[in-house]
Structure formats: C-alpha cells, structure tokens
Computed example of a mutant assay.
Amino acid sequence: MTKHVPGPSPESAESGGGVRSVKSAERTIAVLEYLCSATRACSLREVTTELGLPRASGYALLTTLLNTGWVEADGTGRYRIGIRALRAGAAYVERDDVVQRAQPVMNELNIELGETIHLARLDGAEIVYLATNISRHSLAVVSRPGRRLSSWATGLGKVILAWRSWEEVDELLPETLEPRTANTITDRPALRAELEEIRRRGHAVDEQESTIGLRCFAVPLDFGTAPNEALSCSVPVVRLSPDREQEIVAALLGARARIVH
C-alpha cells in the first residue's frame, strides 16, 4: 500500500498555538525515516512511490540530503541513509538520561551473565533498541541501537505494555497484530491475558516470539510512572535450563533496582 506524506490542509495549517506545519520539512523527515527503515538502498522511484511524492520533489529532496551527508548514493542510482544520521543517532543516545543510568549496570550484568543485554524504549506500537551489550559466546544475539520491533512480539515490548491499561494498549496497537514467528501472539484476548500474567509476576518472557531459537527475559524500568523503557537478557534456548532462567530473572531484577533507585 502506498504511504502518502501528510501535508497541512488549509483548515489545519496552523496548530499548537499557531505554529505552521512546514510541508517540505515533513517530506524531508519522511524520506529519512523511510531510508532508515529500508533494508537496502532504494531507487528514486521506490522512494517517491512509497511516500506518494512528486518525482521532481523527491529528486530535489534526495539531492539536498545527499549534498549535506544525510543520504548517500551507492553509484547505481540508489540511495541509503548517510553518515550524518549516524552522528545524530549517536548524539541522542549519548545524551539520554536513561541510557546513561543504565549503561554501567548493563556492563555489570553482561559480565555476570555472559549473555546479550538490551535496553529499549516504547515508541508508538514498536520498541526501539537504545543500547546493547553483546554476549561473550560465539552464538550470540545482536540488535543494533535504533532497530525497531513490534512491541507485542518482544519481551521488552510486552513488559512495557503490561503496566498500561488494556484500553490504552488496545488503542496503541495496530488493528492486525502481524506475527514475526509462529509463536508470536496475534490474538488480542490472548495478548491481554499474557500482559496480565506479566504484570502479576513482574517480568516478561519472549518464548521465541520474535526469533526462533531465542528466549528473552525482560523487566520494566519504572521511574515512578508507567514504564516506557525496559531491560532484557536474550539467550539461545540451547543454553537455558530452569535454574539458569531463574538466575537470569533474579539478575535482571537486581539490575533494575540499581538503575531506578
């Protein structure tokens, strides 16, 4: 389905106390977000078709972004996100209070458990990875900062959603809960029951719902309000046992207490 970039109508050109929406800025952001989410370099036609842009406007935007380093060309007429975007993303993480509070504890947890530790934040119906400490094992889980995944398909997302009312969760999620694996919960009543159980026990478990062969344990980071961030440990199922699972959950709960104190 073609996605059209929203532009201000005559009736809604001004909002938020008289601040006028700038159509060119909206289009620029849409192009950058599209290229950020793309898994490969994209042609001008792909960008303009997907975003519903006039070809001339799309070309002008991409040329401007190319000249300023926000977009790069691969030499075949295709475009990908540029190095300036990396600088902006790195600056966001470096200045984020939660990341700064969590990172030392994540380092300790990574050493203690020897497994991959993630910090993520809810953004709409998705979670965004903010920081990752990779496992010391050769069989390891890697999720780069900035990666986005469906909240309902991850332990990180489910443990954040669990501390919200079902009405808020239901409104937040898309009408259709697309699966990532055969284990992803896509039935709303089943998801609601799962979130209630997570809230009761205090942590979430991703039972290979995001990646087959991988189990993830997650705890919320609640700084006095409904949590918007969570901490997790991802482990290949071949390295798990009931005792090991209890050890991981206990370590995560201890880490959470050190971060949110």
Rank of each mutant, 00 (worst) to 15 (best):
A251S: 01
G77A: 09
C36S: 07
S210Y: 07
R188F: 09
L86W: 06
K3W: 03
W152A: 01
V205H: 01
L191G: 08
N183H: 14
I259T: 03
A90Y: 11
G16P: 01
R258Q: 12
A140N: 15
G157Y: 05
S232G: 03
A131G: 02
A90H: 14
R84N: 06
H261Y: 01
R258F: 10
T76S: 10
I259S: 12
D206H: 09
S135I: 00
R87F: 11
R78M: 11
L231D: 04
D222F: 01
A91Q: 06
T49L: 05
E33G: 09
A120R: 11
E115M: 07
R121E: 15
S241L: 02
D222V: 00
A38L: 07
V141N: 10
D243V: 09
A38R: 07
H261L: 04
A190V: 08
R258H: 08
R136P: 00
E167A: 13
T48D: 12
S37W: 04
V31C: 09
I212S: 13
E126P: 02
L62G: 00
T132F: 05
L86S: 11
R84L: 09
A255H: 02
N183E: 15
R200M: 12
Q100M: 14
L221V: 03
T2V: 12
A131T: 04
I160H: 04
A230H: 00
A193Q: 15
V128C: 11
E245I: 11
R188G: 00
P236L: 08
I29R: 15
S24D: 13
A90M: 14
E94Q: 12
R20G: 03
R84C: 05
T64L: 13
S12E: 06
R121H: 10
I198R: 01
G18H: 09
P54S: 04
A56R: 13
N228I: 15
C233M: 06
R239Q: 13
A226S: 10
T186I: 12
V93C: 05
D96M: 04
L130S: 10
S165H: 10
R258C: 08
T184A: 12
L62R: 06
P104K: 11
A250I: 01
N183K: 06
G224P: 10
A30S: 14
A38Y: 08
L214D: 00
T186P: 06
G202R: 04
V22R: 15
R101N: 06
A218M: 03
V31R: 08
A60H: 10
R40L: 02
E26P: 00
V169K: 06
P145R: 06
L253M: 14
A91T: 08
T2R: 13
A13V: 14
E247L: 07
T181P: 03
E196W: 11
V249L: 10
S143F: 15
M106T: 07
S232K: 00
V93A: 15
P54R: 05
I127Y: 09
G157V: 07
G89K: 10
S232W: 01
R45F: 07
R136W: 12
A230C: 04
T64H: 13
P174M: 02
Y79L: 10
H4S: 09
L119D: 08
G17W: 11
Y129C: 01
